[in-house]
Design a protein around this nucleic acid. Structure first.
Length: 192
DNA sequence: CCGGTGATGCCCT
DNA sequence: GGGCATCACCGGT
């Protein structure tokens, strides 16, 4: 996982994570997806959960890189982040969308839909598809049952850099990154 | 296709 | 008690 350079800043790690693979094992089978959309968050940034300091909820964000920070929001949804940066500094990369590669029928079962385009094109949708919830908060992503592995590399011209979704503070920052022309991106062509 | 809105529970002020 | 790193559904176009 060294090649992902997760000790880097959140914005750099967010770009590095594009194309890497998320691999999930459940009793029902294995699922694999390629990360196609990410957002960076760090403690200098008012939109970040780590802004304003370490709390019980955000503790994992301040821990070692390569672990999963999973939070619960809007009373019903989970979202997955990959912790990055130096331990002690609260930063992470939100995984906003993946492209389903393997175990697609299982993802459809967990999502209770047959619409492949709508399976994993959003942070809460991909958690539901991969059966990810708070039980995996703090999990080391080099280990089963949820692994992160390096995958395809993308050139800068293949990566779109734009504003983050669903925030109000520091909303001008261009801290969202996605793979150009990939049909599993949650919100393509955001006007800046 | 698009914008508006209700669901629903936890955390922090 | 307010606000939320969201989603599905609804109605008008």
């Amino acid at each position: 996982m060294e090649s992902l350079d997760l000790l880097a800043s959140a914005t750099k790690a967010a770009k590095n994570l594009l194309g890497s693979l998320l691999i999930r094992a459940t009793p029902q089978g294995i699922m694999v997806g390629k990360i196609v959309e990410t957002e960076a968050y760090d403690q200098s940034d008012a939109a970040s959960h780590s802004f304003g300091g370490r709390t019980a909820r955000t503790d994992v964000m301040f821990g070692p890189p390569g672990h999963a920070y999973i939070y619960f929001t809007y009373g019903m949804h989970y979202c997955l982040n990959v912790v990055c940066g130096q331990p002690g500094y609260g930063s992470a990369v939100l995984i906003r969308a993946i492209e389903p590669l393997e175990g697609i029928q299982l993802m459809k079962d967990y999502r209770q839909t047959n619409d492949e385009r709508n399976l994993t094109n959003g942070p809460a949708k991909l958690c539901q598809a991969l059966m990810i919830d708070k039980q995996l908060n703090g999990h080391d992503l080099s280990k089963w049952p949820l692994k992160l592995e390096p995958g395809a590399k993308f050139k800068p011209r293949q990566i779109v850099k734009t504003t983050r979704i669903g925030i109000t503070k520091d909303s001008h920052l261009l801290w969202r990154f996605y793979i150009k022309d990939n049909s599993f991106v949650s919100v393509p062509n955001t006007p800046i």
